[in-house]
């Protein structure tokens, strides 16, 4: 089930690769900067979520 959804996610990415390329290069490549910031935030939030889960587990133990 999960795998199917993953594939669906990837579909527009591969199909519209060329369009995505042009999009990334448009308006002075500013979208690359947005992408970089997005990656950083995604990483930080992933970290936060893991920390959250860890603390949750501690609370349950207590």
């Amino acid at each position: 089930m999960n795998n199917k959804f993953l594939l669906l996610w990837l579909l527009p990415l591969t199909a519209g690769a060329q369009a995505g390329e042009d999009f990334m290069r448009s308006s002075g490549k500013i979208h690359v900067v947005y992408g970089v910031i997005l990656i950083i935030f995604a990483g930080l939030f992933a970290y936060l979520i893991r920390l959250d889960l860890k603390i949750k587990k501690l609370e349950n133990k207590q």
Partner: peptide, 15 residues
């Protein structure tokens, strides 16, 4: 070649 991506200096390099 860089255009606006010169701003990535602040985010990528500082990491």
């Amino acid at each position: 070649i860089l255009y606006e991506t010169i701003r990535n200096t602040f985010f990528h390099v500082s990491l």
